[in-house]
Computed example of a mutant assay.
Amino acid sequence: MNTQDTQDTEHVVLTERRDGVLVITLNRPHVRNAVNRSLADAVAGALTLLETDPGLLVGVLTGAGGHFCSGMDLKAFPDEGVPRVADRGLAGLTRARRTKPVIAAVEGAAVAGGFELALACDLITAADTAFFALPEVARGLIASEGGAIRLPGRLPYHLAMEMLLTASPLPAPDAARHGLVNQLTDGGDALDAAIALAARIRANSPDAVRITRRIVEVTRGLDDHAAFAAQDPLTAPVFRTASAAEGARAFCEKRPPAWTH
């Protein structure tokens, strides 16, 4: 049964539980869900809930009102500064150490810090009417919450540099063609696609998903020798877990596995 809560008194972020999936909705539609201090703290709180609640296995981040996020609230910036949350980055996400997957469900604009939030997620679904951009250089700013770091590894180098240096937007169909978007949907369907993708993740062993995600984090950029050295201490205990035994039994008995969390 679904339950719905709000993360602060202004309802700037909404959370909804859907069978082990936590849907986190940025809810400042009048400013295309721009991130101010209040929204940043609320998103960080929702991500803490995702991490600490054993019944929640996957997060989905989306925006209200037909847009994902327009980035940092520039009207609030002179008084509030960049809305980072401690050492966890913009909205408590861009620099956070996480153990559970998060999927971005993008409608409309995902620009500036909003695009950086999407880049910080593990997977992206997007409507074919959505678009991505990092226009910071046009505002005298820097895409410092992961845009300049992550984008050149997610897109062909020259395309990423064009976006970073010219502030040019990238339509979602082009982003999907280059592999930045996992699933391209009709307008209004990005959230449903993300929830369906989350359900596919949730069907697998939570331990194996968590460790697999960690391996990707710690081995990125390493050569093979260093990567195996970093991976093996993480994987060795997995083969002795109840989940591994259950997975093998379920395969032999031709039934769905019954994972323990």
Rank of each mutant, 00 (worst) to 15 (best):
L165Y: 06
Q4N: 09
V238G: 06
D5Q: 15
L165V: 08
F68R: 00
E217Q: 14
P173T: 08
L180K: 12
R37S: 13
Q7P: 12
A143Y: 00
P156Q: 15
A160Q: 03
L180H: 13
E51S: 04
L134G: 09
A91R: 01
L50R: 04
D53F: 02
V35S: 03
A91D: 03
I24V: 09
V209L: 14
R200P: 05
P237S: 15
T166Y: 01
T166R: 02
L93V: 06
D232H: 07
A46M: 11
G59D: 13
V35T: 11
V13P: 15
V13G: 05
P54G: 07
A143L: 00
I211R: 12
L151H: 05
A203Y: 14
R150E: 03
V106Y: 02
A86K: 14
H178T: 03
P171Y: 09
A109T: 00
I124S: 07
I211L: 06
F132I: 05
P206Q: 11
A42R: 11
N36D: 07
T6H: 10
D41Q: 15
V12Q: 06
L180I: 10
G113L: 00
L49Y: 07
A230K: 13
R150M: 05
N36W: 06
V58I: 02
E253F: 05
V102Q: 06
I103T: 00
V181R: 09
M72G: 04
T125P: 13
D174E: 13
N204G: 13
D189V: 06
P83G: 02
A160N: 01
V106C: 09
I211P: 03
F228S: 08
A199D: 08
W259T: 09
G55A: 06
L47Q: 03
D192W: 04
I215Q: 07
V85R: 03
V85N: 06
P135R: 03
A40D: 13
V31G: 10
A258W: 05
P135F: 03
T99Y: 05
R84W: 14
N2E: 15
A229W: 02
A110T: 00
S243M: 14
P152K: 10
D224T: 10
R32V: 07
S38M: 15
M163F: 01
D53W: 08
D122W: 04
R37M: 04
R95D: 14
C252I: 11
A96N: 05
H30R: 12
A248D: 10
D186Q: 13
V23L: 14
R200G: 15
V216H: 09
N27Y: 11
S205N: 06
T62Y: 02
H30I: 05
A120I: 04
D73S: 01
A250P: 12
G81M: 01
I24D: 03
V31W: 01
G55H: 09
A105Y: 01
T9Q: 10
E253D: 14
P29V: 01
R98K: 00
E253G: 08
V35R: 01
L155R: 01
